[in-house]
Nucleic acid binder design. Structure first.
Lengths: 310, 310
DNA sequence: CTTAAGTTATTCATTCTACGAATATGGAAA
DNA sequence: TTTCCATATTCGTAGAATGAATAACTTAAG
């Protein structure tokens, strides 16, 4: 494909006209050019392909073997380019269609509010069907076409047919009742470890970046409570000495009168990439593209509004 | 495809570089152009596609939905064009391959001598396997891929997947022993009808242009002998009062000391088109193309050497 | 808020080249 | 040969692509 840089692609359009017409003057007419111009192009093409391409035979011009070989390939390729150029732009406001998304409740919390607002205003005809499943199940669904897009934490090297886009990098923050914290608004390692903790886990036994981080440091914390509901977790902490360490975006941020105080964990916890995954066959699906773009857009817009101090 | 004329296709190469790099300056570098040049191209592309294509987002350029939609299609189409350009020319002298041809003995008589000579000198590695069959069987063979090319008299509208090329238009001539003909060297209608005739027919009951012509005129001739062997037929006529009416090219022309005299039939007989037929899927097969071209070439070259006076 | 760094857009003078008018050349037919 | 028709060539020119310089943005840092 590098060689495309070396030649003038417009010559190929002229070549196509020439091979179809088998007549320089008529090809020129068809191209709205002069006969000498097309003759020039033909000379260039002959040099490029190192073949006469058109030869006189009993008065008429006929295709050489090489030209015969080129014609069908050329026709096909140019048709593709032609289709590309007047590909109609996707009109989201008129689109009527259902997309099937798969995500955890955390994903839903992060992705859906902004997206749904966007859909209602810009694409009222687009509906969503959200399902939930294990990472493997979601990927299988995407692969089989039962799911249009999956969201979550997926390890980078997926199947060749799957495409990934990192929507954002998520960090962990801690939350505790304001009244239980010192003036500084955060806890040092020892104080942090001495308090009881709440763990939010979709599935028990799933990869847990928090425990990994503590293990690396050679310390232990007491998990007084485990639950799978992000939204409930932050409410549980209020008016207790419990500490919740969870993905930043799982908190209702900037909530007035919140009894909770957020702070950076005293032990560094690996952030994780939250990804969107789809099948490569959907790459050229205008609607699918639009939705992906919309999701990316709403998440970036939401970024500012959800920014914490750190 | 008409719209391809309206835009500069080279812009699409630039577009591809831009979408791949997501970076104007790097795209320029990849294309060995300056940054302003690519920026200009980007402006043109934005006008053409009526879409920003690349937008700033947290510092980096990102693809719009439209661009995302275009990228895979564009990549595909440009790959095709790239492959087209450095398609290696077919090297007949090195080619090693077998072609399966189907033709009648008349076809063999006309096509093979010149073709085989050409193959031995220019493409010694190309072998031929010639088979014979009814018209329908030959066409079926071509259709199913068991036969690479078929030769014969085929009615114009064949299957959509089949391609036809008329190799030449064949006329009928008469032959008789020189000693049985008047000084003029030819026979008038009554004399011609009064003599016994030889009919060459591949299959009895096949379309017969000669009898058709006579029937149109409302006359009848006596066929004293029918045989399917073109080569033998002309030898049979020598030293008899028989008249042979057959395709011009079936005679060994310009044969010295031939006892036969050729002359134009007194009744006009419809000429027929002798065609080559192949499957459209072979259109872009370099070797197949070369052979077709070789066949056309040898038949045209042979044309002069076989020309009779009329 | 200001400055600095990095990137894209714009301007404009220059260079190139694709273009077409005129014409030469070639090939087939009469 | 001449005539006709089609392609190739020549060459001056108009218009487009190009890039140096620079403006305008955007983000990040001080």
């Amino acid at each position: 494909m590098n060689n495309l840089r070396r030649i003038d692609l417009n010559l190929l359009v002229t070549l196509h006209a020439l091979l179809m017409e088998k007549h320089v003057s008529r090809a020129a007419q068809r191209l709205h050019k002069s006969q000498p111009a097309v003759s020039h192009s033909l000379a260039s093409l002959r040099a490029i392909f190192d073949d006469p391409l058109l030869v006189r035979r009993t008065g008429k011009l006929e295709l050489t073997a090489r030209a015969n070989e080129l014609l069908p390939l050329l026709t096909e390729a140019l048709h593709q380019l032609g289709a590309l150029i007047d590909l109609p732009a996707f009109d989201a406001s008129q689109a009527k269609r259902v997309f099937r998304l798969a995500m955890s409740d955390y994903g839903a919390r992060v992705v859906l509010p902004g997206l749904v607002r966007r859909l209602r205003s810009d694409a009222p005809g687009i509906d969503l069907q959200v399902s939930q499943g294990s990472r493997a199940a979601m990927l299988a669904g995407v692969h089989d076409g039962e799911i249009d897009m999956a969201f979550g934490v997926f390890q980078a090297p997926l199947s060749d047919e799957l495409r990934t886009h990192t929507l954002f990098i998520e960090h962990f923050v801690c939350a505790a009742d304001k009244n239980t914290l010192p003036q500084t608004g955060h806890l040092e390692k020892t104080e942090w470890l001495s308090r009881p903790h709440v763990l939010v886990a979709m599935q028990s036994g799933e990869n847990n970046e928090i425990e990994n981080a503590l293990q690396r440091e050679g310390v232990n914390r007491r998990v007084a409570m485990t639950l799978p509901h992000w939204g409930v977790a932050s409410r549980v902490v209020a008016n207790t000495d419990l500490i919740l360490t969870a993905a930043r975006r799982s908190f209702d941020l900037f909530q007035e009168d919140s009894p909770l105080q957020l702070f950076v964990p005293p032990y560094p916890i690996d952030p994780f990439a939250f990804n969107m995954v789809w099948h490569s066959r959907r790459e050229s699906d205008a609607g699918h593209n639009w939705l992906r773009q919309a999701i990316i857009g709403t998440l970036i817009q939401g970024e500012d509004g959800q920014q914490t101090g750190g």
